[in-house]
């Protein structure tokens, strides 16, 4: 299968996935108890709204139609590039997302870098020194890293580095300094998973005959490990990276609240509490789109990592 055919194929399946996601979230939102019109008006007016006020709110936001009709209308709008309008501020949902997204992407990329910077050397070292103190220490570290909740680590870091030592700002967004603690908070959990994965993948690769060949050439150990072995070991790791993106976005919600970063996560949480359904749906759709797109990229990257891979599933 060539690249164009493959991408076309993946595009087709991606659209089906996104449609599925939108149906499910739409359905779930309308199953949640409470009338959104009443909740929203109560907050806006700061009093119990009258029946007439609720009636008019429902009419202007198209809430009188049956749910399937509302869904179809929404999808039609989305296809035209219109994600709807926030119930509160009359701002377009797309504008809200475009404002918040860069902060979240920045956080995700920084956390990924932190995770890889920790996981690659630690994973390789513990594979090379299997059964040694280094190995056990790294495994223990990984266990702690996996078990530690993000919000707890976040507050702990704030307490130590921002409040006690004063090295870094407590919260907010905009400067690189403000990115450090959130990235570490989010990156460590991911690093823990990746370390164990790289370790086991490397252990497998180190037994391969081509590692012996590389050593028998007279190559330095470091080159044997990081050029010959690691590249082979990374193939399964990249697969997991694609899947881990989901938990990264999950984690971003918590971390953004802890560090008061006005990113996508924070926007989502606010919207959920406010029953701001157009915003919730828009964010869900965009997030799902990012997830699907990243996984296509992951699949494409296999071919650069492993020339034996043929797109479309068949290996030579």
């Amino acid at each position: 299968m060539d690249d164009a055919t493959y991408l076309l194929h993946r595009l087709g399946t991606s659209i089906i996935v996104l449609l599925g996601v939108s149906v499910v979230t739409y359905g779930l939102l309308f199953l949640t108890p409470g009338d959104p019109a009443e909740v929203i008006l109560t907050q806006q007016l700061d009093r119990q709204p009258s029946a007439a006020e609720i009636e008019s709110f429902r009419a202007t936001h198209g809430m009188d139609d049956p749910i399937p009709v509302q869904y179809v209308n929404w999808v039609t709008d989305v296809l035209r590039g219109d994600l709807g309008t926030s119930y509160y501020s009359d701002t377009a949902v797309s504008t809200l997302i475009v404002d918040a997204l860069p902060l979240t992407i920045e956080l995700a990329v920084a956390s990924l870098l932190v995770a890889l910077a920790i996981a690659i050397p630690t994973g390789v070292l513990s594979a090379v020194h299997r059964g040694s103190a280094i190995d056990y220490a790294s495994q223990l570290g990984a266990l702690v890293g996996v078990s530690m909740p993000n919000f707890w680590l976040g507050y702990l870091l704030i307490l130590v580095f921002a409040l006690t030592l004063g090295f870094l700002p407590v919260a907010g967004a905009g400067s690189y300094g403000q990115l450090v603690l959130p990235a570490i908070t989010l990156g460590t959990g991911m690093a823990a998973v990746l370390t164990r994965l790289i370790r086991s993948s490397m252990l497998e690769v180190l037994d391969e005959a081509y590692v012996d060949t590389a050593r028998s050439k007279g190559l330095r150990k470091r080159i044997v490990l990081y050029k010959h072995a690691l590249r082979n070991a990374l193939v399964p790791v990249v697969t997991i990276l694609g899947v881990q993106l989901g938990s990264l976005l999950n984690g971003a919600v918590v971390v953004e609240i802890v560090f008061q970063r006005p990113g996508l996560g924070m926007l989502l949480v606010d919207a959920v509490f406010e029953r701001n359904y157009p915003v919730v749906q828009g964010i869900t759709l965009v997030t799902a789109g990012i997830f699907v797109g990243t996984n296509v990229l992951v699949d494409l990257s296999y071919r650069y990592l492993d020339p034996r891979v043929e797109l479309g599933g068949e290996t030579a």
């Binding site: 391969e208 005959a209 081509y210 060949t213 028998s216 007279g218 010959h228 082979n232 492993d306 034996r308």
Partner: peptide, 19 residues
């Protein structure tokens, strides 16, 4: 290894780095 001695291993299919 780089100068005096070289080795061709058994099962050459597996002795070359696939990537």
């Amino acid at each position: 290894r780089g100068d005096t001695v070289s080795m061709v291993f058994q099962n050459s299919m597996e002795t070359l780095n696939p990537v």
